[in-house]
Amino acid sequence: MDIDWQNFVQLLQLPFMQRAMLGGVLLGTTGGLLGSLTVLRQLSFFGDALGHSALLGISLGVVLGISPNVILIPFLVGFAIAITILLEKTRLWNDALLNIVYSASLALSIIILSFVKEYQGGLNQLLFGDILAIRPGDLVFNGMLLASCVVYLGLTLRTQMLLTVNESLAKVRGVAIARQRLAFVVLLSLVVAVAIKSVGVLLVSAFIVIPACTARLVSQRFSVYVVLSALCGGGCAISGVLISALFDLPSGPTIVMTQFCLFLVAMVFPKGEAIAT
């Protein structure tokens, strides 16, 4: 495969490409940061369920004549809160319940869309995303979201650690479990809603799960793990965008494959003791 380096360098100078790189770093870092806790709390499927339920929000938006960009964030935040309440109120396994929720929301969204004669919303873009379509306004929002996550996790890191290790220990120490859980799922749903635009419904959970699992394979300390997960997310995103530009590949899937390749490298890393201590 011939690489046109001159074309590649010219491409990097285009504003949409620079926005894609910056957007990718912001999204990847945010996904890795929140993903580190999501994975440890065995909520990996939560991101997947949220991603698929986005289709329901979009279909409702189509029926009600509301732009997907407008309806997606409030819909997903509300949906995440509803799922959290559902998880607390039932005695079923989390993964089983999340499977029920996302299957039902997917089925309902397909039924709703079947009533719409002409859908111009770009279902393909929703399913697969387009990081090259990031606008300056999106960058501002993504930056604010990353800053919020860093401040929230930075100021509550000790609480988050104890909550992850053992909820009873945290509760006895006076941690408001429900409030912490709510804040976390709201942030997670915002990240999913924003990431869907770039990587699509089908791949959004990779942004949450893969960097965290990669970081876990090479770290034994909690704080190191969280930072590594964020770095993996951000690093893979910019690498993926660059590789996709270099070889003219679709950006979202290339980012996910970059994450996957790094995960494979981490699998053969000698058990992480070097980074751990």
Binding site: L40, G154, L155, R158, V165, R173, V175, R221, Y225, A276
Partner: peptide, 23 residues
């Protein structure tokens, strides 16, 4: 076993006053 945490980190959590504070 999947939670990455050392003994120092866990015992340190007992020392912290939990709430908003820089790590």
């Amino acid at each position: 076993a999947r939670i990455p945490m050392t003994v120092m980190e866990l015992v340190g959590l007992g020392w912290d006053r939990l709430g908003l504070q820089l790590p």
